[in-house]
Computed example of a mutant assay.
Amino acid sequence: MYALALIVVFVLAVLLEWFKYGRVISPRWSRVVARLAQTAMHALRVGLAYVVMLAVMSFNVGVLIAVILGHAVGFLLFYSSVFKRPPLPDEESKGYLPPMACSC
C-alpha cells in the first residue's frame, strides 16, 4: 500500500506539472468555451496542488521524495526543451494556462 501511495503521489505531481505547462486549450475554440475550459483547468490545478501539499505535510520522507521526483519528471516532459517542439508563430499567446504565480 505504501508503494502504491508513492506512485499515486508521483503521478499527481506529474499531472500538476502538465496542467501548469501543458497545452490544454485549442486555439480553434470559441472565446467563451476557451475561458470556461481555462477556469475548469485552473480549479483542477489548484485542487491537485492542495492534494499534493497535503501529502507532503504528512512529513513522510518517501512522499516528499516522490513529489519532488514527480515535479522534476513533469517539468522535464512538459516544459524542458528536451521534448518540446518549437512553437508555431501565433501559438505563444494562445492555449496555455496562466502561471501559478500572481503577476500583479
Rank of each mutant, 00 (worst) to 15 (best):
S30R: 08
P99C: 05
E92K: 09
E17A: 14
I68N: 13
F59Y: 09
Y96C: 06
S103A: 14
I25D: 02
L64Y: 04
Y21E: 03
A37H: 08
L76D: 01
V51E: 12
M53F: 06
V9L: 08
A37C: 12
F59N: 07
M53A: 15
D90F: 10
A37V: 15
I65D: 01
T39A: 14
V8F: 09
L48G: 09
K94H: 08
A13P: 02
Q38H: 08
R85G: 01
V51W: 05
T39R: 15
A55D: 14
E91C: 00
Y79Q: 06
Y21F: 10
V82M: 05
P27S: 12
L77E: 14
C104K: 13
F10G: 06
F83P: 11
A37Q: 10
A43Q: 04
L15Y: 07
A72M: 08
L16S: 06
F83R: 12
I68M: 09
M1N: 07
L64K: 04
V9Y: 00
G95L: 00
E91K: 01
Y50M: 15
S81L: 10
D90K: 10
A3S: 11
F75K: 14
S26G: 08
G47F: 00
G74S: 10
V46S: 07
L16P: 03
A3T: 08
G47T: 13
C104P: 13
L12I: 03
V67G: 01
A34E: 02
P87G: 05
T39Q: 04
S81E: 14
S80V: 07
S103I: 14
G22E: 06
G22K: 05
V46L: 10
V51C: 12
L64P: 04
L15H: 02
S103Q: 13
P87C: 00
S30E: 14
T39G: 14
F19V: 03
G62H: 14
L54Q: 07
H42C: 09
G47I: 00
L48N: 08
L6Y: 03
S58M: 12
M1W: 00
I7W: 12
P98S: 11
V9H: 07
R35N: 09
E17F: 03
M100W: 15
R35M: 10
L54D: 09
S80Q: 02
K84A: 14
R23Q: 10
V63C: 07
G95C: 02
P86F: 05
I7A: 09
A43R: 04
F59S: 02
E91F: 01
A40P: 10
W29M: 15
V61F: 15
N60G: 02
L36D: 08
V67E: 01
L36Q: 05
S103H: 15
A101M: 13
I7H: 13
R35F: 12
F78C: 04
A13W: 02
V14S: 03
V51Q: 10
Q38T: 14
A3L: 12
S103Y: 12
L64W: 08
L77V: 14
P27F: 03
P98Y: 09
M41V: 15
Q38G: 11
A101C: 09
W29F: 12
R23L: 06
L44Q: 07
V11R: 06
C102F: 11
E91W: 00
R28D: 09
P89A: 07
Y96L: 03
L15Q: 09
L69G: 08
Y96W: 06
R35V: 10
L36E: 04
A40Y: 13
S103D: 13
A5D: 11
V14K: 00
